[in-house]
């Protein structure tokens, strides 16, 4: 009985009004903390960490590159989850959250690609290489574009939500397939995932590690980007809900209610 009551309480936020009321209350917290975290992380990272002995000061772009790359992928995962929730439980807010998140994901992907190019130029001597990671991100970018374009193209909001959700599911499978295909196609220049490796965090791993000096400001940046993402998605979802409500009211007026 208590479990059922708990489950209910989660889905309460699927009600647009409840969602709006709650998100408006928590949004200021997310805006402020994300600004603080990103601010601290960037200032600490840019001005109070030593230059890398090999990479010089260019390494500091990591404070933008890594968080945005992480969010670009996590945003798609969030869209996948909310798409599934829409398909299974038919909560409109869930579909609208997916719609709201997509442009944020596009921007994150672009930031990751751009900072990667700027970092790659001095490091590898080229703005762009068909490295598996870079290529995968480019493909992810194309998936985002198609997803947003499909949302834009369809008038009926429920139809659009259904179609984009299924596209998101199918696209996820193909994105993973592409990732493996691209890896097979070209082993690349990009260093391995250096942040999340256990050895890198504990500092026991001496090769290509991100040492603690760099890691703590980076952690701030990552947390900040997560909070920023949540804030942006909540805010944009609220906008989508209001737009949807406006459409519904206009439609009522048309049918003469």
């Amino acid at each position: 009985m208590t479990i059922a009551a708990k489950a209910n309480s989660v889905w309460e936020y699927a009600n647009p009004k409840k969602f709006l009321a709650t998100s408006e209350r928590v949004l200021p917290f997310f805006w402020v903390t994300s600004a603080l975290c990103v601010g601290i992380g960037l200032i600490w990272g840019f001005f109070f960490t030593p230059d890398d002995y090999k990479q010089g000061s260019t390494v500091k772009i990591i404070y933008l590159h890594v968080p945005s790359a992480l969010m670009a992928i996590n945003c798609w995962l969030m869209m996948l989850a909310t798409s599934l929730i829409w398909l299974i439980r038919r909560h409109h807010v869930s579909a609208l959250a997916a719609r709201a998140a997509a442009p944020v994901g596009i921007v994150m992907t672009l930031i990751a690609l751009a900072t990667g190019a700027i970092w790659g130029q001095p490091m590898w001597g080229t703005w762009w290489a068909w490295d598996p990671r870079l290529t995968s991100f480019l493909i992810l970018f194309l998936f985002y574009l198609g997803y947003v374009a499909l949302w834009q193209a369809i008038d009926d909001p429920d139809t659009a939500a259904d179609l984009t959700s299924i596209l998101c599911l199918v696209g996820s499978v193909f994105a993973i397939l592409s990732r493996y295909a691209v890896n097979f196609w070209n082993q690349g220049l990009h260093q391995g995932a250096s942040v999340m490796r256990a050895g890198a965090i504990t500092g026991t791993d001496t090769e290509e590690k991100v040492s603690n000096v760099f890691f703590y400001p980076l952690l701030f940046c990552i947390i900040g980007f997560v909070l920023l993402f949540i804030a942006l998605v909540l805010y944009r979802t609220g906008t989508e809900i209001r737009a949807r409500r406006m459409r519904a009211l206009l439609a009522r007026e048309r049918v003469g209610g």
Binding site: N15, P16, K17, I241, A248
Partner: peptide, 13 residues
């Protein structure tokens, strides 16, 4: 008939 503005999963209608 148009539903009352404040119905549940409503919010929209």
């Amino acid at each position: 008939k148009p539903k009352p503005i404040d119905d549940t999963d409503g919010g929209f209608l």
